[in-house]
């Protein structure tokens, strides 16, 4: 395909769309970036989000949406190249570095992000955050996991259930 060297493959200026967060903040972003969201892609393909209209996202607040868009903007060029089969090792390393830094954030923000990624169907972002949360759990004992994830200490009843479970699934605790 003879795509231009730079740009996103569109003719001339890239098409922009407007997204409106739940707290009514408007974000203007390239359609190619917003289209990383499967949910938005259909609307955008139908011509939505342009001009004076915006696409309301009633389940995503502005702080979360700005993070989501940061991810989309960074990943849009690679996505436009079909998963970037031609990407250089440097490009891939740069994206990986970005991703690592991107999820190095407070837990509550991670959960807001994964919810937004789930609602907007942004597969790469969902997996990135899910993997990060899994990494927070990895290698920890059940009590350490509880504390890491902010669960209250177990009640005596819950402790008894935990013990029973550990007996039943002893192989998982060896």
């Amino acid at each position: 395909m003879a795509a231009p060297e730079s740009g996103d493959g569109n003719n001339g200026a890239a098409r922009m769309v407007t997204l409106i967060s739940s707290d009514n903040t408007r974000f203007e972003v390239e359609a190619a970036a917003a289209s990383l969201s499967q949910t938005l892609q259909l609307t955008i393909l139908d011509g939505g989000g342009g001009g004076g209209d915006g696409i309301p996202l009633p389940n995503v607040d502005s702080a979360t949406l700005s993070k989501v868009l940061e991810y989309c903007i960074k990943h849009a060029p690679a996505a436009a190249n079909g998963g970037a089969p031609n990407a250089t090792a440097v490009d891939r390393a740069e994206l990986e570095r970005f991703d690592n830094e991107f999820v190095n954030i407070d837990q509550s923000v991670l959960y807001s992000l994964i919810m937004a990624a789930h609602n907007l169907e942004i597969e790469g972002l969902q997996s990135l955050v899910a993997k990060k949360v899994a990494d927070m759990i990895k290698g920890k004992s059940p009590m350490e996991i509880r504390r890491t994830l902010g669960f209250p200490d177990p009640t005596p009843e819950e402790q008894a259930e935990m013990n029973a479970h550990m007996l039943e699934y002893g192989w998982a605790y060896e």
Partner: peptide, 14 residues
């Protein structure tokens, strides 16, 4: 972060 631009605050939920 992004090149996204906040245009204005909208009061309608659309």
């Amino acid at each position: 972060r992004s090149e996204a631009t906040i245009i204005s605050a909208s009061s309608s939920a659309c």
